[in-house]
């Protein structure tokens, strides 16, 4: 489903070059639930933005659903984002001017769907996250957990094959976080591929597979001594 080989991402300024990802390799199979972990600044988010076609990369290859994406133009990338990928952000990123219904509708609009079908899908998705009754509410009128569920509904409405989540519970308290996590697991059971970036080991443990990134590279958890140090540090920071 998602395969990166020798991928690199370099940020260049006038003065320095910074490698955000270097010789990065990952292979996520259809239907997998992968958690990507790593300390701050390790390149987790860069990986996710590249995976989600929000950003281009500097070198290497990236096959998404069998398509090499580096050659695609902006329109084609938009189309893939719209049809194959669902995003869940840490900050929810709902559009404050739009109510719940209209927020969920946004990706469907760009798909040129008929009004009746849009409505049906939106209501199904909201039903699914348990917020059908809040369709007319504005994001500011909802709690953080509710907002994140709206964001999940927005991601689900388009029935994406790949769900990319960036610290989906980062802004939520424990109870809300648990709810969101259960929702993700449910979605996974129904067949979606999920890639979730988190630095919460507890959350990561609930995924099928963990991928650890340090300094822009995937490391083998069992063999790399750096892991233990980093893991301990992460535990300390978040414990």
């Amino acid at each position: 489903m998602l395969k990166m080989t020798h991928l690199s991402k370099v940020y260049r300024t006038e003065v320095v070059e910074t490698y955000a990802l270097r010789d990065f390799n990952i292979n996520v199979k259809e239907g997998e639930f992968v958690a990507v972990t790593g300390p701050s600044g390790s390149g987790k988010t860069t990986f996710l933005t590249i995976a989600g076609l929000l950003e281009t990369f500097t070198g290497g290859e990236y096959h998404l659903d069998g398509v090499e994406v580096s050659k695609l133009d902006d329109n084609a990338r938009s189309k893939i984002r719209n049809e194959k990928i669902g995003f869940i952000f840490q900050a929810f990123n709902l559009i404050p001017d739009l109510n719940v219904f209209d927020n969920v509708e946004v990706p469907l609009r760009y798909r040129g769907m008929k009004s009746a079908e849009r409505k049906q899908r939106i209501m199904e998705a909201l039903e699914r996250v348990g917020l059908a009754s809040r369709a007319k509410h504005y994001p500011a009128e909802l709690s953080g957990g509710q907002q994140q569920r709206v964001a999940i509904a927005r991601a689900l409405a388009g029935s994406p094959r790949l769900l990319l989540a960036d610290e989906p519970t980062g802004n939520l308290d424990t109870q809300m976080a648990r709810g969101v996590m259960e929702l993700l697991e449910e979605i996974h059971r129904e067949g979606a591929t999920i890639v979730m970036v988190t630095h919460d080991p507890e959350l990561a443990a609930r995924a099928q597979r963990n991928v650890h990134i340090i300094d822009g590279q995937v490391v083998d958890l069992s063999e790399d001594p750096r892991f233990h140090a980093a893991h301990a540090a992460a535990d300390q920071a978040h414990g």
Binding site: G52, L54, D74, N75, S78, K79, I80, R81, N82, E83, I85, F87, N93, L94, I95, P96, D97, V106, P107, Y110, R111, R154, G158
Partner: peptide, 16 residues
């Protein structure tokens, strides 16, 4: 800008 970023992420091409 935030709204634009979200719309782009959700698949809005530049033209839209």
């Amino acid at each position: 800008a935030a709204e634009i970023g979200v719309r782009r992420a959700l698949g809005a091409p530049r033209l839209e």
